[in-house]
Design a protein around this nucleic acid. Structure first.
Length: 882
RNA sequence: GGGAGCCUGGCGGAAUUGGUAGACGCAGCUGACUCAAAAUCAGCCGGCCACUGGUCUUGGGGGUUCAAGUCCCCCGGCUCCCACCA
């Protein structure tokens, strides 16, 4: 059986050539036959290890970014298997989303058909990489046996009070009469399809209350020790917790106002300690109170100002170079802490949807307020001592640091920290302040007015309201007979036969919810489904989750640092609180791999990208159009930059093992990788050197090795120097690679250790004891197996190894093999290396010091004077300080 | 503006966590083999100099230390995230 699987001799002689394509195809077929990658069954006693790549969108073609992602995860999965873990390494498809719908609009293809065809294509491409994925657990979020449970989980959140509806803005295309996703709106605010200026419209939409978990999502970042620091910071910034107080300013009677409502303006501030320095209060132009409190003499200018604001896009309104615009509205409020009257303004720099949409202006201690006050000639009152300036500002800037209070009545002399509490607490007693924690994080808008998504399982009834579709009626399937012209609003809303249903509660005619869910919903729980992939009764069982989750190692792009990872964490916590699982966090360790970049030719004058095959001379690249010199850069691979490298082409030429080795060796996984054909070639050469090494062990009589179980040899009692050298190289490699693959994964140095081992063995196996040779090759092949799985398997088989190399255990290093009799002792003089000598490895400090002092180097550099100080680092160096 | 990360030969990158800077590879150079080329094999490969030795060198400057790529302070550059967030 095994012999039949081996490479055929090539026609030119007895020696075999390395033919990666033939070898890889043969082993991939064999592994499939023996079901090598199947996840161990539930009763398996080994410690579970869940390795997961972020699943892809099935665009139809695999790119290098995918390859890098899945190869990294695959190596981790393979190493953990050999280390004796029960490994779960699944794959699926994040299959709902706009591209399928666009294909339908443009080419009339059913999105389901288009998506499934793409999945098939990408699976074929993935198969060639030799990934040890258990495909029996495959999931696609657009299949109803998956989205049924997405709907089920939505209802769980709904039951838990975490799903609700409210009015929110959408992008409305007035020509196509449809809602656009943010990505479909150009930078200049126009529709990607019709080119019409996109309008903002208010629509009643579904939200998830992720803000209920803001504190937990922030605090639990502490636990995620296995996450990159920068991802944790990004999430913390996104959640954006700030502590402060809400302060209520009561409206004052104003002369000339016909009526004044008995109203408060509530502001949020993180600096209650600066309350005495307030010189005005500003509302967002959209603030609901503006109409009611604007005085008659200001009404026309206020209306004009608000109209101007509503026509500006967000970008225009928040542009850096814009001065802070605003106008007074006539009303006045009383500063509750000192009774001063302050004017009320509206201004563009106040955001309606953060805090209370109102701010107290303290120009002396907030830079924005300062600029605003200077522009509109509002008073600046210093109430925090400014160092070196007594009571005034220096440098024409606000003083925003905490400090000691002045001009603040009985709070004078208090440091900011204390004053914040004292002023808030006085306000609480007097009823004008409330301590408040404010978050930047907003509730998650999940409604999409699109077809190709998971339908929200709700029925709207005039008498019963929003009624959940009963669980046993799930899934709410996407209808087939739908008009996907891209016009006339939500495709589902136009399908009367689908939308009109009886109310599950009262049976009266009712209407289905026609929004579908944000695709981030589908990807917020897929890692749970992989633990229990074919359960027809529930999305998963707590037992299955308990066995596999949390994911031990999650691998994916940094672009998901915020949204996907935050949503998945939110789902996990919400489902925990619904009693569906017991973990707090879904992903124990996270590796964010860098981009894959290609050589890019760019004309610096025109900004045009030039395809490599059009560049006139690669040494001195010039634009074929204008003859101008081109700059050579590395940028993320993309069609428009003509710098993509097709994985299939690389595999055709060198095989998957070379591609895997190159990607892992070139750079550490979290850094960007610059694709370089010469380096790929270099990896191919390395694999060929390995091939020749093993070839010799098959054919040369003084190097022959068999790894068959009944051929297992014992090491001789004493070893020659050459044999010791071989063993030292072998066991050093085990130790070093073991180190590189624990904790942080350093595949690049692991592979360089493989190269060192190969260099140490090549030409040094002839004539050494057969047991030493056998050990050396057995170790080498097992160490390379996770990286180059096909070639390792081929070697294992050719040397008569038992079963599959991928079922072998990871080698353990023998510390005694690392020992040396003598070491190179470095002699330093005042910290500079001046020479070295051979010293016994076990020599004590005194001996080493004596050896060093007696050396030629010491004699030369110390010029006969005894050193003032001698530092001995045993096994390393002696530093002589004259 | 706030936050995070990074900066080492021609290039990608190593460096036992304070102990020989430049492992491993790419590119380049020299030689062997060849009619020749490729492949392969052997070797060289940071700069400077009075070149069998010395000296400088990890973005720049300072400091701590017997010893600094590594620790501390100042400055510069690049990348990413957030951003009128009160």
């Amino acid at each position: 059986m095994t012999a039949a699987l081996s490479s055929q001799p090539d026609s030119s002689g007895g020696h075999r050539r390395y033919d990666p394509l033939e070898t890889e195809q043969r082993w991939q077929a064999h592994w499939k036959d023996i079901d090598l990658d199947r996840t161990p069954v539930d009763g398996d006693a080994r410690t579970p290890f869940y390795a997961l790549s972020m699943f892809p969108y099935p665009s139809g073609s695999l790119h290098m970014g995918h390859v890098r992602n899945y190869v990294i995860t695959d190596v981790i999965a393979r190493v953990q298997r050999m280390r004796g873990h029960a490994v779960l390494h699944p794959m699926g498809w994040d299959a709902f989303g706009l591209p399928a719908e666009n294909a339908a609009i443009e080419r009339g293809i059913d999105p389901a058909v288009w998506t499934d065809r793409n999945i098939d294509q990408m699976k074929d491409q993935l198969a060639r990489l030799g990934l040890s994925i258990d495909w029996t657990r495959e999931q696609a979020t657009c299949h109803d046996d998956y989205y049924r449970w997405t709907q089920w989980l939505f209802l769980e959140l709904h039951d838990g009070g975490l799903a609700y509806q409210k009015e929110a803005q959408v992008n409305w295309d007035p020509i196509d009469q449809t809602v656009l996703a943010n990505e479909q709106v150009d930078a200049d605010g126009k529709s990607w399809r019709s080119g019409a200026v996109v309008e903002k419209r208010l629509l009643r939409q579904w939200f998830l209350k992720i803000t209920d978990y803001a504190d937990a999502l922030l605090d639990d970042l502490e636990q995620l020790k296995g996450w990159p620091e920068r991802v944790r910071t990004m999430q913390a910034n996104w959640i954006g917790r700030s502590k402060g107080a809400e302060i209520r300013f009561h409206l004052a009677q104003v002369d000339g106002a016909s009526t004044q409502p008995d109203q408060d303006i509530t502001v949020f501030t993180t600096r209650p300690d600066t309350l005495f320095g307030a010189s005005y209060v500003v509302l967002a132009p959209e603030h609901p109170l503006v109409d009611a409190i604007t005085t008659d003499d200001h009404r026309s200018s206020v209306t004009a100002f608000r109209d101007l604001m509503s026509t500006l896009s967000n970008e225009e309104r928040t542009a850096d170079d814009q001065p802070k615009r605003g106008i007074p509205i006539g009303a006045e409020v009383i500063n509750p802490v000192n009774g001063k009257r302050l004017p009320v303004w509206i201004a563009d720099y106040v955001l309606a949807d953060y805090g209370t949409g109102a701010v107290m202006g303290v120009p002396a201690h907030d830079q924005r307020d300062f600029l605003f006050a200077r522009r509109h000639e509002l008073p600046v009152r210093v109430v925090i001592q400014v160092p070196g300036a007594d009571e005034h500002l220096v440098d024409g800037e606000a003083w925003t640091e905490p400090g000691v209070l002045i001009h603040s009545g009985r709070f004078d002399g208090m440091p900011s920290d204390q004053a914040k509490e004292a002023i808030t607490s006085q306000g609480s007693k007097e009823g004008w302040a409330t301590p408040k924690v404010q978050f930047r994080l907003r509730d998650w808008l999940i409604s999409r007015q699109r077809y190709w998504g998971c339908p929200i399982p709700i029925i709207h009834c005039e008498s019963c309201g929003a009624v959940p579709v009963p669980r046993h009626e799930l899934p709410v399937q996407l209808p087939k007979d739908v008009d996907l012209s891209g016009r006339g609003g939500s495709p589902l809303a136009q399908l009367e036969s689908w939308t009109s249903v009886p109310c599950p509660c009262c049976g009266k005619p009712a209407r289905r919810e026609t929004d579908t869910m944000d695709t981030f919903m589908c990807s917020s729980w897929y890692f749970l489904r992989f633990a229990d992939p074919s359960n027809r009764e529930a999305p998963f069982t707590p037992e299955a989750i308990g066995r596999w989750l949390p994911v031990k190692q999650y691998v994916g792009g940094i672009e998901h640092a915020i949204l996907h990872l935050l949503y998945a964490r939110f789902f996990t916590k919400a489902l925990r609180d619904r009693g569906l699982l017991t973990i707090d966090e879904p992903f124990e360790r996270l590796l964010t791999q860098g981009m894959v970049q290609g050589v890019t030719y760019r004309n610096p004058r025109t900004g045009r990208y030039v395809a490599p095959n059009q560049v006139t001379d690669e040494g001195d690249p010039r634009d074929p159009d204008d003859g101008g010199e081109l700059e050579v850069l590395f940028e993320k691979m993309s069609k428009s930059k003509y710098n993509g490298v097709d994985p299939a082409a690389v595999i055709d030429r060198y095989g998957a093992d070379t591609a895997r080795m190159f990607i892992l060796f070139k750079t550490p996984p979290e850094k960007d990788l610059e694709w370089d054909d010469a380096d790929v070639e270099g990896q191919f050469r390395f694999l060929q050197r390995l091939w020749r090494l093993v070839e010799s062990a098959c054919t040369e009589s003084d190097q022959r090795v068999s790894l068959a179980k009944d051929q297992s040899l014992e090491l001789p009692a004493t070893l020659t120097n050459a044999e010791q050298d071989v063993r030292r190289a072998v066991h050093t490699a085990i130790a070093e690679i073991g180190e590189d693959l624990s904790g942080d994964f350093q595949f690049n140095t692991a592979i360089s250790e493989l190269m060192k081992l190969s260099n140490a063995l090549s030409g040094h196996l002839a004539g050494v004891d057969p047991a030493v040779r056998q050990e050396a090759l057995s170790v080498l092949i097992r160490l390379m197996a996770p990286f180059a799985p096909h070639l390792a398997e081929e070697f294992w088989s050719r040397l008569d190894g038992e079963a599959s190399v991928h079922q072998q255990s990871w080698p353990q290093h023998d510390p005694s093999a690392l020992q040396k009799d003598t070491i190179e002792l470095v002699i330093q003089v005042k910290g500079k290396v001046r020479g070295s000598l051979q010293a016994p490895a076990n020599a004590d400090k005194e001996t080493l010091e004596q050896l060093a002092l007696a050396s030629d180097v010491a004699v030369k550099w110390l010029e006969g004077q005894p050193p003032k100080r001698v530092i001995v680092v045993p096994g390393k160096l002696v530093n002589l300080v004259p």
